[in-house]
Design a protein around this nucleic acid. Structure first.
Lengths: 214, 214
DNA sequence: TGCTGTGAAGCTCTTCACAGCC
DNA sequence: GGCTGTGAAGAGCTTCACAGCA
């Protein structure tokens, strides 16, 4: 049963792990597994078993002592805990190569996150169609976001235009931003920002490989 | 001066922050800033100033007391510390939509990471050309990796084929894997793996927005 | 019996506060 | 005087170890 624990502070890193647990549970479910204990689940997620149990107790008691966790119902509980068991309309700012490939991403078919608007300030791009969505002038963000009750914006502009895109999104009333542009952005504290730059992971690999050699 | 400190353990999270510092320094450099102190740099990176100073001392003493850090030389020192001040040839496994858009990513023009080979096991894709690279059968990974001294492999296959791609890469002698497939992979401990799934960031935003409302 | 849920211990990372140096 | 570099204190997360329960 999902019981939000309003009192405890939940580490952000636990949230990130819940996403991993969910991914692994989904593949277990596909394989027909119905019940799993924390130990093998931990192995599959590459974490400690009590880590999993502790992360889950932030949100409730989902297991059965002596038995384990029901795969399907744990998936449902985690989805509810994360808040992803409902539609999340999003808007995309930036209709370049990156933006275009984001629109086509499988995740938007498989999850309840949807791109409902594509914006760009380039007059050459405005009016173009991407996967059934017309590219609209960034000036019109506010009306669209209000109309469609959008809370999350995705920035896929070149770095020098990221801050401007963020400003538009913020003044349109957005609550969260996923920023693919390789640039830091400044927003009021009530707006949540997540940065995605996979070259940082390549840097991390380069570092690890370089230092393994010693 | 870069001085590798072989004795100290360097937290992985420090490495990730170094990538952020580098990004911010690059944009300061573009703006013509020559010297910066830890305080404003920290603000721009959204971290604590002593965090930066501590992270940097894992690798040496780069600042001048009473003055600050020279932007250009700090960039060079961080690049050296991360090990990204040299060419890093990589191979891509998976020539679908995702793979295609990775090949075109700007980062491969702006950094010294390069994709030097594209592999797929789909006979329909083999022989195709992507940005000047011929798609080659995955069976031929080993020779290519040996020939071109490739140490990093990028997996951009569907999730069900990720493990097979990883196995091929490992037996070809790869040392690090960047995995874009939404699936966990199992590799020997001497192989480093980084996972990229930006839907996890959307989950995190959804969680934060859901809980902000209280 | 077997596995979850959890207080407490342990450990790692972060921040403080100031010595050290330009 | 001012800012870096750093030992020590503090905070937060992870893991242990076992009570609790099916």
């Amino acid at each position: 049963m999902y019981t939000d624990n309003k009192n405890k502070h939940i580490p952000k890193i636990s949230i990130q792990r819940l996403a991993v647990y969910l991914q692994v549970l989904e593949s277990l479910d596909v394989d027909g597994v119905e019940v799993i204990t924390s130990e093998p689940l931990a192995k599959a997620c590459d974490v400690n078993a009590s880590q999993i149990r502790k992360d889950l107790t932030y949100f409730g008691e989902f297991g059965v002592r002596g038995v384990g966790y029901n795969v399907k119902s744990l998936m449902a509980s985690i989805s509810e805990a994360l808040g992803i068991n409902r539609e999340w309309p999003t808007v995309l700012v930036g209709a370049g190569n990156l933006g275009r490939s984001l629109v086509g991403h499988n995740g938007f078919k498989q999850t309840r996150f949807k791109i409902v608007g594509v914006f760009d300030c380039d007059p050459f791009k405005i009016g173009e169609e991407i996967a059934g969505l017309e590219v609209v002038c960034t000036q019109r963000l506010k009306e669209k976001i209000a109309d469609l009750k959008v809370e999350i914006g995705i920035i896929a502009t070149p770095p020098e235009r990221a801050q401007r895109a963020a400003n538009h999104l913020v003044s349109a009333g957005i609550k969260g931003i996923l920023n693919f542009a390789p640039a830091r952005i400044f927003v009021p504290t009530y707006v949540n920002v997540e940065y995605v730059d996979y070259f940082h992971y390549l840097y991390s690999l380069a570092f690890q490989i370089t230092h393994d050699k010693r």
